[in-house]
Amino acid sequence: MNNYKEFRPVDFAADVDFIRWIRSPESYPDNTRFWSQWLESNPEKEADVLEAEKLVALFGYPDDVAAHRATLWDRIDTSLEASEATGKQIKMAEKAFNWNALVRYAAVFIIVLTVGAFWYLNKNERPLATMAAKATVYQNINENPKTILLEDGTSVILYQKTRLKIHPEFNVNERKVEVEGKAYFEVLRDEQRPFFVMAQGVTTRVLGTSFW
């Protein structure tokens, strides 16, 4: 129970029981009885209660609220009946809708398949272009030399702790590799695609020979 004796007008006005007493005394008879008795035994609070009443009275209903209540219920009732009556039709419509959905999914599936096929064919035609971006790196961590055959026919012997990086577009217009360490190249001659070796920041052009 609230300590109503300490209440200011705004506290009364904000109290739900007080609001109910002012606004709908008939709907809450127990509450109404309580407030009548309370006011009788606390007459000094009458002025505050009156002020609180005015505040509550600010929050009234518009005059035409009853008319709106009636017309909107008719509208709701009509919608409810309509939705019940068309319940079966809606279910059938849902089935038809599913067929439409199936056709749509099929269309998407075909598109994906077509795009996929194009991509796959292009990949085979231009393998290096599509493989792109990633350089192949060979590294010899063993003590024994390791021989590597590059895709253009060049063979490379990598000695201990040597790293060989193949340019991503190796063998497209040119052949570019990077060496860190010691390696022996036997370059296959191809004047259309010159062979470049980068080592310690220096690039060397090779046509077709073997070198260290």
Binding site: F59, Y61, V65, H68, L72
Partner: peptide, 30 residues
Amino acid sequence: DQFFSALYTYGLKITQSSADTEDAIHELFL
């Protein structure tokens, strides 16, 4: 019946549109 008046007035004071408020209450009860 019990709540319409209060719901309607509450909505009206927020939207200041009777039509919008009625639409929302209609939808709410459906």
